[in-house]
Every structure is written in C-alpha cells, then in structure tokens.
C-alpha cells in the first residue's frame, strides 16, 4: 500500500551544509554575517579534533597550493597558516618580500599573477599597505586571505579571538570587551570591532587620546553590539568580561604620540590591580607579539587569567577552517 502526501518543494535539510553563499576571499570581517562567523567557529571546533589526533594529517586539500606572501615580518600568523595548510595536506609555499621579486621591482599584482599562473589556489597576504589584499583580489581570480594589511584589517586574528572568547564564555553576545592601547594603528582592533559587534558584544576602545581614532563611531556604523570610546582605563574596565591589550610600538613615542613608555605604563598598562575593576571572571588577551611589562604586566600575561596561549593554539584551528571553506572540494547539495 503506497501512502502519498503532498509536500512543498524544498532542499533536504542537512546540518552538514552551511547557509551562507560560498565565499571566495577573507579580506575583513565587515562582510561576515553572524551566521557565517558562527559556522566558521563551529568548523574550527571540529578542526581541533584533528589537532588532537595522534597523526595530525587529513587528505582534504590534497593537490591544492597555498602561498603565504609576507611583506612584513611575522612568526605566529605565517607559521600557523603553514601548519594549517600542511595538516590539511595542501602544498604550502612560503614567500617573504626579501626572497620575492619585489626586491627586483616587481609589483604586488604582477607577483600575484605569477603565482596564479603557477596554479596557486590561495594567497595568504600580509602587507604594510592598507588595502593591498583587495588589490590582489580585484586583479586576479585567486582566493585571497588577508593576513594583516597596514592599519586596516586582520580578520583571521579577530576570528581566532572570537573563537577563544566563545570557547571560554560559551557565548559572545552581551559580553563587555575592552580593547586597550594603540587603537589608531591597530588592524587587530579594527577587525575585532567588526566581529565582536556583529556577534552582539559591547566593545569599549580605550587608549591615550592621541592613539584613538576620532571618527570611529561613524566609521563602524550600526551593529547589534554597542561601541564606546573611553580615555580613562579604570572607567573602561568597569564590569568588563574580556580585556584585550594591544602592542605598543616604540616608534609611536618618537612620532610624538606618546610622552614616554613609563607614562603609558602608569596610565594604560593592564595589570592585576587594574583588573580589580573588571568582573571577577574577566580574562585577558593579547594578539602578540607582547612587550612584556609594558602594555600588559608580566604576571597577568602568564597567569591564570591569560588566554594568550589558547589564542595561539586556536589560531591553527581557525585557519584550517578558513582554508577548508575556501578550498575544499565541497559537499553535495
């Protein structure tokens, strides 16, 4: 006996498929929806299982080529992309500006086109000029991941920060996150503002007036999470759940933006005593590399409230998730 009934036409539901259109580039978090961030973090969680295996190797990206092209020095970002690519079985080529033809005057776009002609599938680019990854994305058909461009964006750092926060607090929405330091020159802060507010966190930016952008409230526009500016650290830390300290570059002092490092430490160093203003459960983060004892006290950076090590570990899983999103053979719909 055949029982029949009429159903509406719709694709078979599957929790294995995302809901967001297939992404080609990761340039900043300003074009990530909350759902896409959520799904990226969930994939990163599943990637962590691979990192915990005895043999840390899966065949997913066999035959794919990833080029890391770094025009600025980096330890953790470059190494974690290389590690992520290799665990997924991709071929990874590392180029730095001192080894590339940029030394001989080749332009960035020409270098990228050469890599494209060689069959590279993804370029992971770090460049001191804001917008450089957008230029490469526009002039080649290769997938581009922004690994930091000038003062503009560092989306993979922000995603690993979001992942680290979610892991500890089980949520991002409603948390108060304070970012302390040289906000003006920080691509990490900018990408974090996009990501955190999209996920519903309230962000407070804190630093000396000379290192705070003035137009920030207009520049970031509306998002589920709030955005505030505060020059007094003790006020900013009041009731905070997460405190992110940013690296202070000594060049800022020669440029006249900081009176002295000692003055900065006195007013803006995140330390145990100041953390008394934050919630009891509050944790601290730092994107690295750290000036131990300058923007963050030694005890806090290496103590029980520090998430710095988790940030590094999560960096590999998050970058595996992004490479998988951009370059995997995909799933049947």
């Amino acid at each position: 006996m055949a029982v029949s009934r009429v159903v509406e036409e719709r694709p078979a539901p599957s929790e294995l498929l995302g809901t967001e259109p297939r992404r080609q580039h990761v340039l900043d978090l300003d074009d990530f929806s909350a759902a896409e961030i959520e799904q990226t973090l969930e994939t990163a969680d599943a990637m962590a299982e691979v990192l915990g295996r005895q043999i840390r190797k899966v065949p997913t990206l066999r035959g794919r080529t990833i080029v890391t092209l770094f025009y600025e020095p980096s330890t953790r970002t470059r190494a974690s992309f290389e590690q992520a690519g290799k665990i997924l079985s991709a071929d990874v080529i590392n180029l730095t500006s001192s080894e590339s033809s940029s030394r001989k005057g080749e332009s960035l776009v020409d270098t990228a086109r050469t890599l494209e002609a060689m069959g590279a599938d993804i370029i992971v680019l770090r460049h001191s000029m804001s917008g450089a990854p957008y230029l490469v994305a526009r002039h080649t058909s290769i997938s581009v991941i922004n690994a930091g461009d000038g003062w503009h964006a560092h989306p993979t750092q922000a995603l690993l920060d979001l992942h680290t926060i979610k892991q500890r607090f089980k949520r991002i929405q409603g948390l108060k996150v304070v970012i302390v330091g040289d906000i003006l020159h920080s691509r990490v802060a900018r990408s974090n503002v996009w990501g955190l507010r999209t996920m519903g966190a309230d962000v407070t930016l804190c630093g000396p007036p000379t290192l705070l952008p003035t137009d920030v409230l207009e520049a970031f526009g509306k998002a589920p999470g709030g955005l505030a500016i505060e020059t007094d650290l003790d006020t900013a830390l009041d009731g905070a759940d997460v405190v992110m300290a940013l690296r202070i570059q000594h060049e800022r002092q020669t440029a006249g933006l900081l009176p002295s490092v000692r003055e900065y430490i006195r007013c803006y160093q995140v330390n145990e005593e100041r953390m008394g203003r934050a919630k009891e459960t509050a944790l601290v983060m730092h994107p690295g590399p750290m000036n131990d004892g300058v923007e963050i006290s030694h005890g806090l950076a290496h103590g029980a409230r520090s998430l710095v090590e988790s940030q590094v570990t999560n960096g590999v899983a998050v970058r595996m998730a992004l490479l998988y999103m951009l370059a995997s053979p995909g799933v049947e719909s």
Binding site: E15, L16, L17, G18, T19, E20, P21, R22, R23, E36, Q39, E42, T43, A46, M47, V50, V58, P59, T60, L88, A321, Y324, M325, S328, P329, G330, V331, E332, S333
Partner: peptide
C-alpha cells in the same frame, strides 16, 4: 567532510 571528493556546492561547507 575532510575525506569527501564531491562536487562543490554554492554554500560554504561547515564541518
């Protein structure tokens, strides 16, 4: 997902 060889679909894969 890490072991498949299927054709690409129009949405981001989620693991």
């Amino acid at each position: 997902g890490l072991y498949r060889d299927d054709v690409t679909s129009g949405v981001n894969p989620v693991l």
